[in-house]
Nucleic acid binder design. Structure first.
Length: 373
RNA sequence: GACUCGUUGGUUACG
């Protein structure tokens, strides 16, 4: 029970839901926190129905269970259900409110997030962090700063979020300034600054110097440094980091596949892909794109068909591979087969026709788009 | 001990 929580949590992070379930099933009368941990595990792994089934099976669900279910809905894009669920709650605490604010923000409803924040009873620092994050992620730095000034006190989260916000706007100097004003930046904040340096290639020296100065490094730090070299096409440096990392996870491996693909070394990319201990849709898609960008459309297609679970990004990548090769017939065929046609899928078509010189067709698609931007 | 906020990899566009 006590360590069952940790086990379930660990397994959930490793996508080992079956093992999490096994731990759970080994308990004859699981305490409520263990039920909640399992619910969260399902929710984080996109198993919403299972999460709900767990919730319904909890003998005496407390507020934490309700909050967990609320977040599970929100994190799986079920905003409406989340809101109805929130409204149906007999009791709410600050965590429920924070979860609802985050639910709106993460699903793109900034105004509703703000309204909820403004009317919640007793916002705590997490509430403030949540609303600042919402504005920062949208790129509204002015409002983010305004809210930041009204916060009772700064937190590691708010500091990190602001560094990230400036970085995402390409304002690296200001990001650095904020970062340097931070008294004792934690690993996440350092990683964020590292990522800011990594995103362009203009700041490789600063990236590696920060990386070397970091006293605490986690997997994300290493992966971010790796990515910095990959972005700059510094294959040898990337290989050096990859070889010396304490731990290589699926993110590290995928970065290397991308690196080789960008360098035009399909053999190395494929060798790396084949050696990956575990593969997720992102890894498959990276390899698929490597084939496509190097003109191997047939290989890309048969590889695509082999992907065990194709998410929407994988579909988009196959479509884009054809579109970029000028084969709009094949691109459209993929597009038509898509279960979900997101913005990227539409953009790829419009852009593909435009690049092929078929302007009128591009415009026709553009006008048919559900939401234009 | 469980529930809410921040960092890294794959697709398009944006930059």
């Amino acid at each position: 029970s006590y360590l069952a929580n940790h086990l379930i949590d660990m397994y959930a992070r490793c996508d080992s839901l079956a093992e999490a379930r096994a731990v759970f099933d080994s308990l004859e009368r699981p305490p409520t926190p263990v039920w909640t941990a399992l619910l969260v595990a399902y929710g984080r792994n996109k198993k919403l129905d299972e999460a709900r089934a767990v919730f319904d099976a909890i003998p005496r669900p407390n507020l934490a269970c309700w909050n967990a279910m609320l977040s599970a809905y929100a994190q799986n894009g079920r905003l409406r259900t989340a809101r109805d669920f929130f409204d149906s709650m007999q009791r709410r605490n600050v965590i429920s409110w924070n979860a609802m604010v985050a639910a709106y923000a993460q699903n793109g409803y900034l105004e509703e997030a703000r309204q909820t924040f403004d009317k919640m009873p007793d916002p705590d620092l997490v509430s403030w962090n949540t609303i600042v994050t919402a504005y920062a992620k949208r790129g509204d730095l002015v409002e983010a700063r305004k809210l930041l000034r009204r916060m009772p006190k700064q937190t590691p989260v708010s500091q990190t979020v602001m560094v990230l916000a400036y970085a995402q706007e390409g304002r690296i100097d200001e990001a650095r300034e904020l970062f340097e004003q931070t008294r004792h930046p934690d690993v996440l904040c350092c990683n964020t600054m590292l990522g800011a340096y990594a995103q362009t290639g203009q700041h490789l020296v600063e990236a590696s110097s920060l990386f070397d100065r970091m006293v605490a490094k986690d997997d994300v730090s290493w992966n971010t440094m790796l990515k910095a070299y990959v972005t700059c096409g510094e294959i040898e440096k990337a290989e050096g980091v990859f070889a010396s990392m304490p731990r290589r996870d699926v993110v590290s491996w995928t970065s290397m596949v991308t690196a080789y693909g960008q360098a035009g070394d399909l053999e190395a990319a494929r060798r790396t892909f084949d050696k990956m201990p575990s593969k997720d849709p992102a890894a498959w898609t990276a390899m698929l794109t490597a084939y496509g960008r190097n003109g191997e459309l047939e290989e890309a297609r048969s590889f695509f068909e082999d992907i065990p679970t194709k998410d929407s990004v994988a579909w988009n990548a196959m479509e884009a591979a054809y579109a970029q090769a000028g084969d709009m017939v094949a691109a459209v065929e993929i597009f038509k087969r898509m279960a979900v046609k997101d913005q990227s899928a539409w953009n790829t078509l419009v852009n593909g026709y435009a690049q092929a010189g078929e302007i009128q067709e591009a415009k026709r698609i553009f006008d048919a788009m559900p939401q234009r931007d």
